[in-house]
Amino acid sequence: MDQLLIDLAAVLAAASPLIFATMGALISERAGVINLSLDGTILLGAMAGFSVALAANSVPLGFLTAALIGAAVALILCLLSLNLGQSQTAVGFVLALLCTELSSFLGAPVVRVPGPAVAFAPIPLLADLPMLGPLLFRHDPFIYMSFLLVPLVWWLLFSTRLGLLLRALGERPATAFARGIPVLRMRYLACMVGGALVGIAGAAYSLDLKQGWSYRHTFGVGWIALAIVIFGGWRPWRIALGCYLFAALEIVALRSQSGLRGIPTQVFQVAPFVLMIVVLALVNLLASPTLTRYIAALPEPLRRPITKLATQIVAAAPAALGKPFERP
């Protein structure tokens, strides 16, 4: 029981950078901009955050640097795609590779150098609660923030006027424009705020969950974050669930390494990535015309709950995602 609690707490911790990265991607994609550079941005944020935190001996400064770097990468993406008409996919992909190489090059002096890290900070009183204490309240400030970020983004997107505008940019930019919303400027804003969150996710690795810096420190986690956003159907709570599921898989893989002999550990490391794709395929298959036809042929009492379930599980991307916007 205690071991289970420890493992669950480890899952919550391991998912925290993913929460930041996916929420950043979500904000950007809801506004219609796909930021494919995530993996590179996370690496560059991790490297820069660690280097600055080390040089200035200040963890907050490290996080701030990472956020600025993330916003800057997003700014380049916006400039090239929104203003200069280049494909968001192409620019994002190139930025992903370029930032990865930059992180390797600029990070070379700090490889495996010990440095500062986010301090453990159990919350007084709450930390002593049975069950909930060890699960939720014995972490560090970054992880507490990851708990708060999901409801915050959900509230922002679905309960505020700003969120409504943001979603309009991703669904019907022409209508938003006709209502007098500065489409491009708002997209810049969303993409850069999202990019800052992604940068922070990077710093969370180098300053908190995987402390220090090494070559390709975060191993493809940005691509996974992009996949989780799709898996979560561009809805904050389901994306968070995806992050926790993925983190749980990682922990299981880590724990079972000693248990299963004959299968090399490296094979386990790729398992979560593969499962992610399988789940994506299953989710999308639910929406396939063939399956819809089968469901339609079911008897009435069965059909209704299944259709309802399917529409809940399947979600479409923002209609204008990745498409260039031209003033009508």
Partner: peptide, 9 residues
Amino acid sequence: FAGLGLNFL
């Protein structure tokens, strides 16, 4: 994403 997943696999 299919390609990336298959790369890891």
